[in-house]
Every structure is written in C-alpha cells, then in structure tokens.
Simulated scan of single mutants.
Amino acid sequence: MSIKEIQEEIVDEFSMFEDWMQRYEYMIELGKSLPIIKEEYKTEDNIIKGCQSKVWVHAELEGDKLVFTADSDAIITKGIIAILIRAFSNQKPKDIIDADTSFIDEIGLKEHLSPTRANGLVSMIKQLKLYAVAYQTQLN
C-alpha cells in the first residue's frame, strides 16, 4: 500500500467518529497497536526533541524499506506516533521524504492538540523524515 492510500484510510477511519472524545479514544487504541521499540533503543539518541512527553523512535532499513518502531510514556502521544508510523513504516525512504502530511490537517489533529502536543507532532514528522533522508543517502 502506498503512503497516500494509508493516509486516506486513516482519514476515513477518523471521519467515522462524531466527536473528539471518540477520536482520542481511537488514538489511544491505535497507540496500543504500536510496534514497540526494543528496550535497547530507548536511549537519549532516539528521543524526539520538542515533545513534552518522551517519545522514542528507532528506524531500520529492511531491504529497501524503512521500518519504524516507537514508544511513548504518554497514551495520547503514543497514539499520535502510531498514526505516523502506520503511514510511513515499511515504505521506501524517498517516498517518506516526498510524502505529503496534509492528512494530519484533514483529520483535524493539529487543531485539537494543545500547542505543546502540536509542536511535538511537527517534531515527530520531522524526525521520521530525517531518518528517511539519512537512509536514502545510504541507499544511493
């Protein structure tokens, strides 16, 4: 599945809920399905800077695809990173770099987060794309 198709799927899922309480509950559920990072990767180097809560992300190249694992000490944040990982994991680095992230606005996520969480969201997207840039360089 392409990043765009996954993003459209996420937008469709979020549109099923009438209010933000339901959407937050859904995000918490998504957080529970997150591919959890191994303890050995829960290091300072893997913490996303700019997040109020702790978020660890690890990236590994499997063949020509980038696979992400993550964890967070906050349940909503865990849901946010789960959404991003679902969209970007198991994709080629170049596709991640080129990916549009407007689906975040389509589900209304940024406007329903506190300013610090919204900044954290931006930092998470930036970090996933930085990993993609680093691995794309290795592939070339």
Rank of each mutant, 00 (worst) to 15 (best):
S33K: 05
L109T: 03
K129D: 09
I83P: 03
S72F: 03
E106R: 14
I107N: 08
K110G: 02
I107Q: 03
V55G: 06
V133L: 06
E9H: 10
W56H: 06
K65N: 10
A99K: 02
L130W: 09
R23E: 12
A134S: 14
I96S: 00
K129A: 05
N90D: 15
F17L: 04
F68E: 12
Q127K: 14
N46H: 14
I76Q: 05
K94Y: 13
T77A: 15
E9A: 04
I75F: 15
V57G: 06
Q52S: 09
T69V: 12
A134M: 15
A99I: 04
L61M: 12
R117W: 02
I6W: 04
P93F: 11
S53L: 13
K126G: 08
S53G: 08
E25H: 00
T137Y: 07
V122K: 05
A74N: 09
Y131L: 11
G108F: 07
W56Y: 07
A82M: 03
C51E: 01
I47S: 14
L128M: 15
K78P: 03
W56A: 12
N140K: 05
D12G: 07
I3R: 02
Q136I: 00
Y41H: 15
E60K: 08
A70K: 08
M1A: 12
I10N: 02
F14H: 05
E5S: 06
I97F: 07
A82Y: 03
K4D: 15
D71P: 00
Y26Q: 12
K92E: 15
E18K: 06
I125R: 01
V55T: 08
L61P: 04
I47F: 13
H58Y: 09
R23P: 09
I3E: 00
M27H: 06
V67N: 06
P115G: 12
L121A: 04
E39V: 08
E5A: 07
Y135W: 12
R23W: 10
T69K: 14
I76A: 01
D73C: 14
C51L: 00
W20M: 01
A82L: 04
L113E: 10
Q136P: 00
E5G: 03
T43G: 13
E8L: 10
Q52A: 14
D64T: 09
L109R: 01
L139D: 15
I104P: 02
I10D: 04
M21R: 03
V55W: 06
Q127H: 11
R86D: 14
D19A: 04
R23V: 03
F68R: 12
T69M: 12
D100H: 00
H112L: 04
K65S: 08
D19T: 00
Q91R: 13
L130M: 15
Y131W: 00
E106W: 11
A132L: 08
I47M: 13
D45R: 11
R86K: 07
C51G: 08
K49Q: 10
D64M: 09
M124V: 05
E29S: 10
K54E: 10
D45A: 14
F68S: 10
N90W: 11
